[in-house]
Amino acid sequence: MAFLEIDHVSKYFPSHTGDGQVCIFKDVTIKIDKGEFVTTIGHSGCGKTTLLNIIAGLETMSEGGIILSGKEVSGPGLDRMVVFQTFSLMPWMTVFQNIRLAVKAAYPDWDREKIATHVHKYVDLVGLKGSETKRPTALSGGMKQRVGLARAFSIEPKVLLLDEPFAQIDALTRGVIQEELIQMWNTTRNTVFMVTHDVDEAILLSDRIMLMTNGPSARIAEIVDVTIPRPRSRETVIEHPHYYKIRNHIIHFLVRHAKHGTGGDGGPPDQPVSEAPLEVNFERDSLMLR
């Protein structure tokens, strides 16, 4: 049985007009193995954050279920930590206090000293030694998200949920933090579910990439295997023969779906939405490229 199983999850919101409901996405199904890094890409508004929040337990699903290591997920918990797009550090706490809040919550019976050591370990890991007593206001966007990552890793969750973690960070810093993330993930091997707009970021970090069609009634149309061996780095990854194949494939998919409201390859909008996602693997089959 898979480690994290998302089974026919659908989400409806009440429509703006009052009566009836809008389907945001329907029948999202994927099995994620322990230690796997899975990324979802889709256009803005297709429901990526909603899906991530449902996995986190911060939002309820309308249909379906999620099973994490054999247990059904209901509500938020310390086994699924989110790294937020907006960092979500408490601005009234210092860097140290922000991470300590999480560590204290995760390990309630540790003593002060053990907690402090643990916090310092993760502060060092993201290269923020010396900034422990600073407040988030005094940090750059990149440093804030480093704190967010340190806080998430520090509670050693079963699943790490990253919601466009680098979207608000300038391109140069983004590359650096992406590599730091790879290094941290290499040592911990958490299961990661990430949402992003950035195709290069997705290829660099992921094992599999889920491609989501546009909403309403979005669905997972394809799941692309990133057939590039690890360890990866930003320089080496682009030299792999599959890199541009995967990249072009994803970009073509996104361009095809850029027109709002079309559910698939220009087909009728009311085509059956529950059809299983196409599995794309360039190693197995190079004919997938259209």
């Binding site: 986190a56 337990g57 911060l58 938020p76 989110v82 937020f84 979500s88 408490m90 809040l101």
Partner: peptide, 12 residues
């Protein structure tokens, strides 16, 4: 900000 309450909820 909802985010703060989300963090509090995740941290139980």
């Amino acid at each position: 900000r909802k985010d703060y309450l989300h963090v509090a909820a995740i941290l139980q």
